[in-house]
Design a protein around this nucleic acid. Structure first.
Length: 419
RNA sequence: CGGGGAGUGGCGCAGUCUGGUAGCGCACGCGGUUUGGGACCGCGGGGUCGCAGGUUCGAAUCCUGUCUCCCCGACCA
């Protein structure tokens, strides 16, 4: 993309109505637009980041057999009444609305009920199970207080997967597969080293624990106790002597840390399938309950977490896999040779599948460098009269202190272009 | 929902206490000088001060109500 044609501009001023670093930076850099508290729109570069995160999640879910669907945001009341989750006293953060004829509707805040309802017509025999379905979609929750930018919104993007199994053993296997896939997701997002599987409250329906994936962060809302050697943690909310014993954790091995929840998987047992009257017939012709698990990853929250986690005093620093572009091409000056060479490099990189932000604007070098840093693009390449004269390109990684002068071939090699 | 802070050109702010119809920086337009880390000079356009009502000769400024935003807490299927 040529920046001279890009409609978004960065700002020198930090928005006054945000104190969360992720929101400040993302707004300043023009990745998101605040619509209202807890509700953000994604501008072109922000949308690219969201899409990159979604794609990684999608690939990992597909890899373990997840089948993607897209459920609806508008929800009928009846299925939620069957599980006793329609009443505002039971679930207080519903957004609800009405048809003109008065029929009440809900605005989707999670999708256990509609998923189970939708797939019920395809399950009758043990041969139809197990399987997992997932979707990546906006959720709406009427939080009393939105806060921390993208970390806690009223409208946010989430991946939610649901597994259906014939028995506990089969369920456990799926559940552990998803846990592994989650680790793979965080690793690819660059958060692998700081994200831990964490025992947490399983909810009101079960005696079991759920598993959260917590990324260590000072801005986190959660307090966890981490056993670094084992690579697992326990949430403060279930931190009791009894639970430690049950989980085989020793108090002296645990360190208290602040963390932000970037994923949560939990066993639903047969709560929803039974309530919605969905069963299967086993080999012996007997009616059996279906065991469910549900698995969430906050896609938009992850964008905020990653933004805040890697940022430095100059701005955003995106890991390669989620960056909205790989290269920020700075053209300094507008002499014929410089324009020619910069255009040619842009063509070369683009035609080799590399996303480039080409700063062809008529601005001073300092502003371009500042934007390159603020936007957090992994590599910056400069083409100027100097580099043209020396027959080199100047390349600097966003995280590097020094730029280096390298040849065209070396540029291609660094960026992974096979000659 | 309880407590605290704040709403003034697109963005960031001053002015409010001590009423007299609005100012600065950034951004924007024009002209010129500049051009490797957010340049400089000159000229210029743009707001009636969140909204509603009230007090007053006169309200951004005082009073009442209301909406919104941020922070702390509670809450978080």
């Amino acid at each position: 993309m040529k920046l001279s044609q890009y409609f978004v501009k960065t700002s020198k001023n930090v928005p006054a109505d945000e104190t969360a670093r992720n929101a400040q930076l993302l707004i300043q850099a023009g990745f998101i637009h605040k619509e209202m508290a807890g509700v953000y729109a994604y501008l072109p570069l922000g949308l690219r980041v969201i899409d990159n995160i979604k794609q990684i999640v999608r690939e990992e879910m597909n890899a373990i057999g997840g089948q993607e669907v897209q459920m609806t945001t508008l929800q009928p009341k009846d299925i939620w009444e069957k599980t006793d989750r329609w009443d505002d006293k039971k679930v207080d953060n519903w957004f609800k609305t009405k048809l003109t004829n008065g029929t009440e509707l809900g605005v989707g805040l999670t999708h256990e009920e509609p998923i189970v309802d939708a797939i019920s017509s395809y399950i009758s025999s043990y041969k139809d199970l197990p399987f997992s379905v997932y979707q990546i979609q906006s959720k709406f929750r009427n939080e009393l207080r939105a806060k921390s930018g993208l970390l806690r919104g009223r409208e946010f993007i989430m991946k939610d997967m649901y597994s259906l199994a014939r028995n506990q053993e089969e369920h456990e296997k799926l559940y552990e597969q998803v846990a592994e896939a989650y680790h793979a997701v965080y690793k690819r997002l660059g958060l692998g080293d700081s994200t831990y599987r964490t025992y947490a409250d399983g909810g009101i329906f079960t005696e079991r624990f759920s598993d959260e994936f917590q990324t260590l962060s000072d801005i986190g809302e959660d307090t966890i106790y981490l056993d670094e050697a084992k690579g697992v943690a326990i949430n403060k909310e279930v931190y009791t002597d009894e639970n430690l014993a049950k989980l085989g954790l020793n108090k002296q091995d645990l360190v208290e840390k602040k963390a932000i929840e970037v994923g949560n998987i939990f066993p639903l047992e047969t709560k929803y399938t039974d309530a919605l009257d969905v069963y299967y017939t086993d080999e012996d012709g007997q009616k059996q309950s279906i065991i469910m698990g549900c698995y969430g990853i906050g896609v938009s929250r992850l964008m905020g977490v990653i933004a805040e986690h890697f940022a430095d005093d100059k701005g955003l620093v995106w890991p390669d896999n989620v960056a909205p572009a790989k290269v920020y091409l700075v053209r300094i000056g507008a002499s014929d040779e410089v324009v020619k060479q910069a255009d040619a490099l842009y063509e070369h990189l683009t035609s080799n599948g590399i996303d480039v932000l080409y700063d062809d604007r008529d601005m001073r070098p300092g502003e371009k460098f500042a934007d390159a840093d603020l936007l957090g693009i992994p590599y910056r390449i400069v083409v100027s009269d100097k580099t043209v004269a020396a027959d080199t390109y100047e390349l600097k990684a966003r995280t590097a202190d020094q730029a280096e002068q390298i040849s065209f071939a070396e540029v291609s090699k660094t960026l992974g272009i096979v000659a």
